[in-house]
């Protein structure tokens, strides 16, 4: 196994594109190292991206944020402007693992690990975030929901790296929230996750919404029907009830050691509703 820690994105792409056999990107390593230790992967090449300066920075971009792929959860949590604009995204990222894990784990890593239960991904999808992808054929920007295609599988081509997560400019009276269901209080994997992002007009009517669910399908899903239940309403009890029903209806989960189908379908609706209530409060609306 070869370990490389390049200092430019171009060098990283070149390494990844040029290697025959299995190559993996190491950002925080909180998934990769565990997979290696349990014999699930044995990469021939590991490219550590933490030495690339741009990957370690949170930068303002067109009124929004550009979060480098190697920025840790703890660094996200310490960024006041980010926390104020996107509290749901930050709380989702900060739910991952423990304090120790938080000093390493990254948004881009969580996205590219392509777990359907990834905590930060429903929040990013709800936020309308995009991924800046660098590859041998140049750069492209894609919606985050197009990265994962199934458990552990991404749409990234050979040699491609997600170099940053981009969060858009915030409209006034906007709020987002993420909730996950775990049997414990921490140190756990989402049985269901729900991210909601919404914007209100000056009268408190919802003008835009996005709802995303985790751990209820083969990947994180965007649920436009659930968002549609909120748009044009004051996010009142009836709208929330429709939102919950739409969220439950969109689920296509499996039975596994973490929960039953039946349980996930029901709880997805409950969490979507509760997340919407928090997002509403953050947008300055009242319930």
């Amino acid at each position: 196994m070869r370990y490389e820690a390049p200092t430019t994105i171009n060098a990283a792409v070149k390494l990844l594109a040029g290697k025959a056999g299995q190559a993996r990107v190491l950002a925080g390593g909180t998934d990769l190292l565990v997979q290696m230790r349990t014999d699930r992967v044995a990469p021939d090449l590991i490219v550590d991206v933490k030495r690339i300066p741009a990957m370690r920075a949170i930068a303002a971009k067109s009124g929004g944020f550009r979060i480098g792929a190697a920025v840790s959860g703890a660094e996200l949590g310490a960024n006041k402007a980010l926390r104020k604009a996107w509290p749901g995204v930050v709380e989702a990222a900060n739910l991952i693992g423990s304090t120790q894990i938080q000093s390493r784990a990254t948004l881009a890593g969580n996205l590219c690990n392509a777990s359907p239960a990834a905590d930060s991904v429903p929040a990013l999808v709800a936020a309308g975030a995009s991924a800046a992808v660098a590859g041998p054929r140049g750069k492209r920007t894609v919606p985050v929901e197009s990265i994962a295609v199934g458990p552990g599988k991404t749409s990234l081509k050979k040699g491609e790296i997600v170099e940053a997560i981009i969060l858009p400019k915030r409209a006034p009276r906007s709020g987002d929230a993420y909730l996950r269901f775990i049997p414990r209080t921490e140190m756990d994997i989402a049985v269901v996750g729900a991210g909601v992002n919404l914007t209100l007009d000056s009268k408190g009517v919802c003008t835009a919404a996005r709802v995303a669910l985790g751990a209820v399908a083969e990947r994180v899903i965007l649920v436009p029907e659930a968002a549609a239940a909120l748009v044009g309403t004051k996010v009142d009890a009836a709208a929330l009830k429709r939102l919950a029903a739409a969220a439950s209806a969109a689920c296509r989960p499996i039975d596994d050691k973490r929960g039953t189908k039946e349980f996930r379908i029901k709880v997805a609706g409950v969490l979507a509703r509760r997340a919407a209530e928090t997002a509403l409060k953050r947008a300055g609306g009242s319930k």
């Binding site: 140190m187 756990d188 973490r258």
Partner: peptide
């Protein structure tokens, strides 16, 4: 009482041989 259990699949293999999915309480629980 609440969360710990040995989960066996239909294949007779243990599904949760680790502290992630064998849930002993953490301090905050």
């Amino acid at each position: 009482a609440l969360n710990e259990e040995y989960v066996y699949g239909k294949d007779g293999r243990l599904q949760n041989a680790g502290f992630l999915d064998y849930r002993i309480p953490v301090a905050s629980d």
